[in-house]
Design a protein around this nucleic acid. Structure first.
Lengths: 196, 196
DNA sequence: TATAAAAACGATCATACGTTCATTTAATTG
DNA sequence: CAATTAAATGAACGTATGATCGTTTTTATA
């Protein structure tokens, strides 16, 4: 056999990305073999190389795509909001919504950072720092305006991000609680936490 | 060559555990080969099997030892404290202190859960649930006594644990901030967060 | 001190891995 | 519609991996 009827490059690549997300999310990057991946897509292992260059590059692309989308959408979500409290609320709602929608990408983006080659890792870490700074800037503005209070903005930033990102490890949309309630609980915890 | 002078079983096993912690913490379980591990300990790969049964069992032992110690010490740390607020403060301080001291074990305990075989994973997940319940119970008692308020105890439990556990991914004792200040910032965030 | 047990070596096994390649067939293009 | 490009096959390569085993030497035991 050779090229199969109906095969199309972009569609196969999308299938590889989707299957890769699923497998890396559940098994981890190292534990996912390209044979696993090919089987899930319905290809022979060698055929993957018509669409990807290396396994490492696939991982990088998955994480990088996610980070770029994250940065774009956080800026959309905060655009036009001035008041620090409103900005913080908007950030919380955005962050949780995004992390519910794309929990596989988010999880991989942190759990598999270590699996990236140094050069690739640096690029992702830089993007992540940019994202962290979105929150840090909000906190700083709020503290300056005496609407928030914290002994250490950097630590608070990490703490809040850790809290909000934690849902990736346990939340399921099918569970007992819906996303609005989830956002409400977290919003209250954070807003009261940084209150003067 | 054969048995080396001065070699002792327990000492070698301890060295294997220490090297294993270090390697799994930095590279991940799958990425650590038993050849890496043996080299770090100063053994031939085959010699590891005088001390461990399988790679999987080594991982399980590392995580299990940690979970057992965690449960023991949290109960020590909470013993005799009655007031929900005091209990919550004690829990926060204990959790952060332990997670600073043993951040490699803690990190492995969550990041490598997926690398455990189902049977082993279940045992660890059960222990983790017990630990989560320590916090959930404190929150519940506080809500019952009208000293805390939250729309959902389970979600708050996860959120607070995620926040407190987050330090494992970034905190270094050599950094700008010392552990007392770290505890102070987190305590304020949480205590205000659950305030009525 | 004789004997058994423990702890190391070094070679090796079977398997699984990421990747390459010549080849074949389908889809696209001029 | 002919020529080119794209997308698949299946076999294979070299390497790395977890684990086993017979052997040897040291330590512990009776």
């Amino acid at each position: 056999m050779a090229r199969t009827t109906g095969s199309s490059g972009p569609r196969t690549l999308a299938a590889i990305h989707e299957a890769g997300l699923q497998l890396i999310y559940t098994k981890g990057y190292d534990a996912m073999s390209l044979r696993d991946l090919a089987a899930k897509v319905g290809l022979q292992p060698g055929s993957l190389y018509n669409h990807i260059n290396t396994k490492q590059e696939l991982l990088f692309d998955l994480i990088h795509n996610h980070m770029v989308a994250l940065m774009e959408r956080v800026d959309e979500g905060l655009a036009g909001i001035k008041d620090p409290r409103k900005r913080l609320e908007a950030f919380i709602a955005f962050h949780l919504t995004y992390h519910i929608e794309r929990k596989r990408e988010v999880f991989i983006g942190s759990a598999e950072l270590r699996s990236l080659e140094p050069k690739n890792r640096k690029r992702i870490v830089n993007l992540r720092r940019d994202y962290e700074n979105r929150l840090a800037d909000i906190l700083e503005a709020g503290v300056a305006a005496k609407k928030f209070k914290t002994a250490d903005i950097r630590v608070s930033t990490y703490a809040i991000l850790a809290m909000l990102t934690g849902i990736c490890t346990w939340y399921s949309p099918k569970g007992r609680i819906d996303s609005d309630a989830l956002i409400a609980v977290h919003t209250r915890l954070v807003m009261q936490g940084v209150m003067p």
